[in-house]
Design a protein around this nucleic acid. Structure first.
Length: 291
DNA sequence: CGTTGAACCTGTTTGC
DNA sequence: TGCAAACAGGTTCAAC
């Protein structure tokens, strides 16, 4: 469940009940996805949670500075493909693949569950966090249209690759890239540098609409994934391209296709989203097919 | 530079 | 029915 709207939903959920809570004890399952599990075990017990923020697809659980210290530190969490960060009563049975448990002072536990362990978890100082996040691009809901145009024109890569590249924009993943491109009627394999101003203006508005609606609907639950409060998201009801191969385009009725762009499954309407002329789609026909 | 494919890991779906 | 391949919300890196 982890693109910007899902991570934002988790952050908002945790923010309603974590600030002010004290971490009493830390327990781990598998730790191979953590930078330095010993540091987490050493530094978190006894600390109080200040707040929870989202930066791109990262969650940061900020800690109140330890007494006498002015160094702000936090727990940085990336959910990868299958990560979930949620609170449950300590008495609740542990789900399979629970890899980190932070026992809180109110009888609950903050738990990290991650089937595939593609996530990340680390304790970081504010400075270290800034260094790690400095590679990330703009927040898609904060970037100006002018800046967005410049970013789409900045490189000669396919627009889908640009949207997925966290150094260009932070937070967009495979679902929201395809949904935004469908709304903007832009084929995922078009080169960013070849998009017109009008193309980019439509894409800019599409991304804003899609992400804002998705946040309102608490993200997309496409499998059995739940947010921090155990609720499903509902944005999957508004999906128009993603995972709709062979189904009718909501706009024109043509059958949605699936192809690979930037190494990822990409769903698009072949009629509404016209393929770029030259770029490799499939092999050029041995002879010309139409005459 | 940009693209592709593999790797990381586990589970589910699809296809023959 | 059974088994293997393909595929899955992400990121990174080597090779071309």
């Amino acid at each position: 469940m982890p693109e910007l709207p899902e991570v934002e939903t988790v952050a908002r959920g945790l923010r309603t009940s974590l600030p002010g809570r004290r971490i009493m004890e830390v327990r781990f399952g598998k730790t191979d996805f953590m930078d330095d599990p010993a540091a987490i075990e050493r530094e978190l017990p006894g600390r109080t949670i200040e707040t929870v923020e989202r930066r791109g697809k990262y969650l940061i659980v900020w800690l109140v500075p330890a007494n006498g210290s002015d160094v702000r530190a936090g727990l940085m969490v990336h959910l990868g493909m299958t990560g979930r960060l949620l609170t449950q009563a300590a008495a609740q049975p542990l789900e399979k693949h629970t890899h980190a448990i932070f026992h809180l002072d109110d009888g609950r536990e903050l738990r990290y569950v991650d089937i595939r362990r593609f996530g990340q978890m680390a304790v970081v100082s504010e400075a270290a966090l800034a260094a790690r996040l400095s590679r990330l691009g703009a927040e898609p809901l904060e970037v100006s249209e002018e800046d967005f145009v410049a970013r789409m024109h900045s490189r000669r890569a396919r627009v889908k690759a640009l949207l997925l590249d966290q150094r260009v924009l932070r937070g967009i993943g495979n679902i929201y890239a395809d949904e935004s491109l469908w709304r903007a009627r832009i084929h995922p394999a078009r080169l960013g540098s070849r998009l017109t101003r009008e193309d980019i203006a439509r894409l800019y508005r599409a991304i804003r609409w899609v992400l804002q609606r998705a946040i309102e609907l608490r993200g997309s639950s496409i499998s059995d994934y739940l947010d921090a409060e155990g609720r499903r998201g509902e944005f999957q009801r508004l999906h128009r391209a993603y995972d709709r191969k062979g189904k009718s385009c909501f706009r024109c009725g043509a059958k949605i296709r699936r192809t690979i762009v930037a190494g990822r499954s990409s769903y698009y309407c072949p009629r509404c989203q016209r393929a770029p002329r030259k770029t490799a789609r499939r092999r050029a026909p041995a002879r010309r097919r139409r005459g």
